[in-house]
Simulated scan of single mutants.
Amino acid sequence: MTLSLTPAPSDAPGEAAALALDGLVTLAELPEVWIRHQALAPFQMEYDGRRPMVIFLFNAAQPARGGPAFPRGAFSLLVPGEPRRLESAEPVETLAVAFSPREGIRLPAVSTPPPGTVDPGVHALAHEVRRVLLTEGDEARAYLERLTDTLITRAAQVAGGAPARRRPDLAPFNLRRVQEHIDSRLPERITVDELAAVAGLSRGYFSRAFHAATGESPHQFILARRLAEARQRLDAGADDLSLLAIQTGFSSHAHLTTAFGHAFGMAPQAYRRRMAGLAAPDSEPR
């Protein structure tokens, strides 16, 4: 992967000529993918339409030539054969991902979706691409390749160009991100819509793909993680079960007790007594 903090040359991502902005543009070249991130600054790009390209806006922007403003998180999928000039009337932070056409990605006939479209999956993926690009560099090459591939796939799905796969598939890095998100928010309410957004997938597709990858529904997996955390805290000496229920995302002491009993065959109190007995030294010499 080649990273640069210099202005984008005229043959950079998507063969798009951009304003020369010293120190504000980061470029990355991967196999069949070209990435250009521009920090908050005046934006102008001549897109010649030779390669498809995803353009993402990290903040709201007003087109220089008038028209409705684009909201923060808006994106477009530009298709070959449609050269255009992209210019903002005010500073904007952008991510451009150009790519060679590939098998499994069916591009729409015209650039789409409509200007101003916001998708939670594209939003989450674009932010992760930016983070990896700006903070991890060459060490994250493989991750960045998979990440941009997922971003391209999701953008094409939203644009209506990607065919549905016969078997739902959740990439390993996406599964890891979902699992980490769940573990970091166990005390809170976690919804399937929220997890689907983290994975960059629709709710229905994510549910099927998650079950195919883990053998459990998202709800079952979240419950198992909460129970595992509760058991670990009991092992560590937790004794206030009402507080433990709150810390692990159960609605009440009774809810925790019921779920724990179904999973482990005993109530939390009985489990705690059993663990305490196993940890105590023998009272009689052998």
Rank of each mutant, 00 (worst) to 15 (best):
N174Q: 14
L175A: 11
R176W: 01
R177H: 05
R177C: 04
V178K: 01
V178W: 00
V178Q: 01
V178Y: 00
E180N: 13
E180M: 11
E180F: 03
I182W: 00
D183H: 05
S184P: 00
S184A: 15
S184Q: 12
S184V: 00
R185D: 09
R189K: 13
R189H: 13
R189W: 08
R189Q: 12
I190G: 08
T191Y: 12
D193P: 06
D193K: 12
A197T: 04
A199E: 00
A199H: 01
G200W: 04
G200Q: 09
G200N: 09
S202K: 08
R203G: 00
R203D: 09
R203Q: 11
Y205Q: 03
S207A: 15
S207H: 01
S207T: 09
A209K: 03
F210P: 02
H211A: 12
H211C: 00
A213H: 05
A213Q: 08
T214N: 04
T214A: 01
E216Q: 14
E216K: 13
E216P: 00
S217C: 01
H219M: 05
Q220T: 10
F221M: 03
F221R: 13
F221H: 14
L223D: 09
L223E: 15
A224L: 09
A224K: 12
A224Q: 13
R225M: 05
R225P: 08
R226K: 12
R226S: 11
L227Y: 08
L227M: 06
L227A: 09
A228M: 07
A228T: 13
A228S: 14
A228F: 04
E229A: 15
E229V: 01
A230K: 08
A230R: 03
A230P: 09
Q232Y: 01
Q232S: 12
R233G: 01
R233K: 12
L234N: 05
L234H: 04
G237L: 09
A238G: 07
D240N: 15
D240I: 04
L241N: 04
L241R: 12
L243G: 10
L243E: 15
L243R: 15
A245G: 08
I246H: 14
I246G: 10
Q247K: 13
Q247G: 06
Q247D: 15
T248Y: 06
T248L: 07
G249V: 05
F250N: 06
F250H: 11
S251A: 15
S252H: 10
S252L: 05
H253P: 02
A254V: 13
A254H: 11
A254S: 13
H255G: 15
H255L: 03
L256H: 06
L256R: 06
T257Y: 04
T258S: 14
T258L: 12
T258R: 15
A259I: 03
A259P: 05
A259N: 11
G261D: 06
G261F: 03
A263K: 14
A263F: 07
F264A: 03
F264D: 02
F264P: 02
M266Y: 03
P268W: 02
P268D: 04
Q269R: 15
A270H: 11
Y271L: 04
R272T: 11
R272K: 14
